[in-house]
C-alpha cells in the first residue's frame, strides 16, 4: 500500500495497490491512468527528456528566420524575435506585446516549469505545487501551437499574393511544439511529491 491518490481527471480518491514493474493503476471510474511504475529510472524521465528537447529547440525556433517573404522583389527574412521587435519598434505596442507574451514568454515559462518539476527540483516541495499550477495556467496561454496554425493558414491564404518561403526555424518550431506537448502529456503530477 502506498497511500491514497486522487484521479487526475475526475478527482475520485483511490486506495493505491502496490504496483509491479510495468503496471499501471487506473481510475475505477474514468479509466485514467493514475500511477505507473516504470521499468527503470524515475517516472519523470520521459517528461524531462521531452521538456529538455523542447527547451533546446525553442531557441532556434524563435531566433532563426521563420519566414522569407518576397513581395514585389523585396526580400525580407524574419524570425519570431525580430518580427516582434519590429512590431514594437514600429509602434504596434499592443500586437507586439501580445505576440511577445504568448509566443515567447509563456511557452518558455511552460517549458522551464516542466523542466523544474521533472529534473531540476530547485524549489521547495510546497512551492512546486505552486509551480505546477502556474505551469498549468501558463500552458493554457502559451500559444505556440496557435501561432503555428496561424502561420499555416497565412501560408495557404496569402500564398498567391505574396511569395513565401518558410525558413529553417519552422521545423524547429514544429518539433518544439510537439516536444512540449509530449512533455506535458507525459507529466504525472504525482511525481512531484513522489521522491521528496
Amino acid at each position: 500500500m502506498s497511500g491514497f491518490k486522487a484521479c487526475h481527471c475526475c478527482g475520485l480518491v483511490h486506495r493505491m495497490p502496490t504496483l509491479g514493474i510495468g503496471k499501471v493503476a487506473v481510475c475505477s471510474r474514468c479509466d485514467t491512468p493514475i500511477h505507473r511504475q516504470r521499468a527503470a529510472g524515475k517516472s519523470t524521465l520521459p517528461t524531462a527528456a521531452a521538456a529538455l528537447g523542447a527547451f533546446i529547440l525553442f531557441w532556434p525556433a524563435i531566433l532563426l528566420p521563420i519566414l522569407d517573404i518576397e513581395r514585389l522583389g523585396h526580400h525580407h527574412e524574419s524570425s519570431i524575435v525580430t518580427g516582434t521587435i519590429q512590431l514594437i519598434s514600429e509602434g504596434s505596442w499592443f500586437v507586439g506585446f501580445v505576440v511577445l507574451l504568448f509566443s515567447i514568454i509563456f511557452p518558455l515559462l511552460k517549458i522551464m516549469m516542466l523542466l523544474e518539476l521533472s529534473v531540476l527540483g530547485l524549489f521547495h516541495r510546497k512551492h512546486r505545487a505552486v509551480t505546477y499550477r502556474l505551469m498549468e495556467s501558463a500552458g493554457k496561454w502559451s500559444m505556440m501551437d496557435v501561432l503555428l496554425l496561424a502561420f499555416l493558414v497565412m501560408l495557404i491564404k496569402v500564398g498567391s499574393l505574396v511569395q513565401f518561403q518558410v525558413g529553417p526555424a519552422i521545423f524547429a518550431f514544429v518539433l518544439c511544439v510537439a516536444m512540449s506537448m509530449l512533455a506535458s502529456l507525459m507529466f504525472d503530477p504525482h511525481a512531484i511529491w513522489e521522491d521528496a
Partner: peptide, 17 residues
C-alpha cells in the same frame, strides 16, 4: 475509498529504457 484498478501498461514506450 475504491482501490485503483491495476493493468498492464499499454503505453510500452513510457516503460522502455
Amino acid at each position: 475509498f475504491p482501490t485503483a484498478v491495476v493493468r498492464d501498461d499499454r503505453i510500452g514506450l513510457l516503460n522502455k529504457s
